[in-house]
Structure formats: structure tokens, C-alpha cells
Design a protein around this nucleic acid. Structure first.
Length: 296
DNA sequence: GTGTTCGGACCCTCAACATC
DNA sequence: ATGTTGAGGGTCCGAACACA
């Protein structure tokens, strides 16, 4: 509608692929916030707004036929994560979309009350320009959600915007955001630093996505506030490097196990840093029986 | 406990419409 | 030309169910 996503079809820099296993032709798997419903963003406790507004979920532009049939989350890559997971990568093709019908007459528009819809301004909380409030955010709430409001964020992170168009590079704006969890077993990632064409999607150990979408309750123990930069110093544009934001990794027992339910959750158990509902990983199991015809 | 199905809420796209 | 509106049509969450 009038809303737009603050997070785009972001293609974050990604950890190096491990080509041998699941991704014969690795394409980018936007496993980051693009595949992460915004209501799942990791807020540390105590910082989470009392009544955290439900945030929008992201959708891919075009789901593959398999995901479409199964009504499951797809992603932009082909093969998509889900198809890869179920070993049907070769069947992972874009579904056909109907042509939008034209010539549909519409009645006159209602005027918005109060008229002027000039919402988003690039004025930050200090009254300084530079803090870009994504249109959707600004337009949908009188008080912008936390990630965009505070002059200084409790945590620094990177929030890919949706302001770029296909063909353009993603636009990253330093945002007031909470840092993601680190991987449980940090390992040197060869050539890491966000490589193009990489698939953060299914990193067999030791590779893990930098962004690990976790529900808040599972994402708290090690998140620490990023230090406020010294006076006069610019707010650092955070990289996706855990070292910017985290305390040392906790022992595995400190991880809470996500609620187990459904097949995807099973995968999670093997990859504790993964919220499988948002971000499945290949586990070599057979594909589910894809039901046919949803009749919608 | 794990895997599948699917209703329906949610989201995106984009043509029609409105305003400058 | 540019901005806004809002409906069409797609995505996928999450509850319910089935199965091992």
C-alpha cells in the first residue's frame, strides 16, 4: 500500500561459500533481514519497547514453484534455500505471475485527513540531517520505531534499506539498530568481508551467516551496547563484523533452544544459531511431499 | 517429536487518479 | 511530471493435522 520496506532486497556481504556441498551454483541468498520478518528482529530485553509493534514481514518478489505450492517461504536465489534443503534444487524455478489487469476503473480518492503527507525527513533526533528515516517507517508511525529514533543507538548495526531499485546497489544507511548475534563458533572465514555471490544461506560449518535472525528472547545474552563514539567523532558505520558489537562468544549451553515445532525447527536444533523458520539450512533430508494445487 | 497441509493475514506492485 | 491511492494478486505465517 503506502508502505515500503525499510529493508530491501538486501544483499549483504556474505560469508564464503562452501561450494562442495549444497550449492552447486551459488547465488546470493539474502538470508539477512530480507528474509527475516521485522517482528523478529533481535531486541535485547529491557530495550524492547513495551508494546513492540508488530513489524512487517518481507516477501520475495517471486517465489519458486515449489515454495509457492507449499506456501512456504522462498528466497531470491535459485535454487532457493528450501529447494536445496529438500534436494529439489533442479526443480526450483520461478513461478509464473499473472499479468496485472489493466483498465480497471477506480472511483475518486478519498482525501487523507490533514492533507500533507510529507512524512519522512532526513532529520535525526538531534535535529541534524543525515538520519534517513525510511518512508515506510516514517509513514506508518508518528513515533518511529526504535531502530530509527534514538540519536545514539544502544547498539549499532546495519539496516539495509529498500531504497534501491533492481540493478542498483543496495543502499546501506547507518541505522540505529541492534546488532545481530555472533555465530556460536567463530572461525576465520576465508576472504570474509562480505563477498559477492556468496550464499550465507547454508553455510556448513564452520561458516555461519553474520546476521543471525533470532527472536529477541534468544538473542540477548551477549549483546552489549556499542560504545558511544567520542565527542566529535562520527558514529561508526557498523560493518557486519561481530567484533564490533559483541562480547566473546558464550558457551553453547548458554543458548536457549528455540521452540521446537515443525520440520524447520528440527533443522534449528542442528544449527543453533539459526531460526529455521526464517532461515533454513540444508540438512540433506528428502523433500516433503509437495502438495499440489492450493486452490487460491 | 517430526513432517505436511492450507486458511487467511500480510505484503508488494503498479495503474488509476490527483495535484503541482 | 510527480505524487498518492488502493485494489489485484502473490507470499508465507502459523495453527491444525497426520504420521512415525
Amino acid at each position: 500500500m503506502t508502505d515500503h520496506n525499510p529493508d530491501g532486497d538486501d544483499h549483504q556481504g556474505s560469508p564464503p561459500q562452501s561450494a562442495d556441498v549444497v550449492q552447486p551454483q551459488m547465488t546470493m541468498h539474502p538470508i539477512t533481514y530480507s528474509s527475516m520478518p521485522m517482528h523478529m528482529y533481535p531486541f535485547p530485553p529491557g530495550v524492547l519497547p513495551a508494546a513492540a509493534p508488530r513489524t512487517k514481514r518481507r516477501q520475495v518478489k517471486n517465489a519458486c514453484t515449489n515454495c509457492q505450492k507449499a506456501c512456504k517461504k522462498c528466497d531470491d536465489a535459485r535454487p532457493c534455500l528450501r529447494c536445496v534443503k529438500y534436494g529439489i534444487a533442479e526443480e526450483c524455478i520461478d513461478s509464473q505471475r499473472k499479468e496485472r489487469q489493466k483498465g480497471v476503473k477506480r472511483g475518486p480518492y478519498k482525501k487523507r485527513d490533514g492533507k500533507s503527507n510529507s512524512v519522512d525527513e532526513t532529520i535525526d533526533a538531534n535535529g541534524q540531517p543525515g538520519m534517513v528515516i525510511p518512508p515506510a517507517v516514517a509513514a506508518t508511525s508518528a513515533t518511529p520505531p526504535i531502530p530509527y529514533v534514538a540519536p545514539y543507538a544502544p547498539f549499532y548495526g546495519q539496516y539495509p534499506t529498500h531504497l534501491h531499485k533492481p540493478g542498483e546497489g543496495p543502499v546501506y544507511v547507518p541505522q540505529l539498530v541492534y546488532a545481530p548475534l555472533p555465530p556460536p563458533h567463530p572461525q576465520p572465514m576465508p576472504g570474509h568481508g562480505g563477498q559477492e555471490g556468496e550464499a550465507p544461506g547454508y553455510p556448513p560449518p564452520p561458516y555461519y551467516p553474520i546476521f543471525t535472525p533470532y527472536p529477541p528472547q534468544y538473542a540477548t545474552p551477549y549483546m552489549v551496547p556499542a560504545p558511544r563514539p567520542p565527542e566529535g567523532q562520527p558514529i561508526p558505520v557498523p560493518g557486519m563484523h561481530p567484533g564490533h558489537h559483541y562480547q566473546p562468544y558464550p558457551p553453547p549451553h548458554m543458548y536457549q533452544k528455540p521452540p521446537s515445532r515443525g520440520p524447520d525447527m528440527h533443522v534449528a536444533a542442528q544449527h543453533p544459531m539459526v531460526d529455521p523458520r526464517r532461515d533454513m539450512r540444508y540438512d540433506g533430508r528428502m523433500p516433503e511431499a509437495l502438495h499440489h494445487g492450493h486452490g487460491k
